[in-house]
Amino acid sequence: MSDNNLQEYVTILIADQLFGIPVLEVHDVLRGLSLTKIPLAPAEVAGALNLRGRIVTAINVRKRLGLPELESEEKGMSIVVEHHGEPYSLMIDNVGEVLGLNLDDLQPTPVTLNTCWKEVSGGVYRLEDKLLVVLQIERLLDFAGSSNIAA
């Protein structure tokens, strides 16, 4: 029965922090596509790109999490997720592996976390050597309100 509680995550790395996104939500992994900037867009929106004929909105996850910019943008990777039928490309530092984790082991988000981290975190797994923060895509993309406050 433990299989029912098994959730597979794609692990991603942002500023040396390990994050996980449920594997079924990941549509694509990209590297080095040219971005078109969108003036006047929220700071978290890095631009738009063409993914096989679809226009994908790129989200700068570092900005979203209040982290400094990655020094050289070339090195970054992107993970394409879909939200309400719209594709979004999450710009991250690196993609790791796929981990199968038991939902029973998911710990609640520590209340002391930074607000914008708390918003997007769906809980924390204690891996042997690291902590893995589960990213909630829906919350991650809902930055209209938070960006206003920041501004």
Partner: peptide
Amino acid sequence: VKPIAPILKNLSIFSGNTILGDGSVIM
């Protein structure tokens, strides 16, 4: 003309976006 992503809907300055012949996205 393709509609812009919902999270950018409040940008009244763009009516949409599209992909040009060379494959790049343009607002």
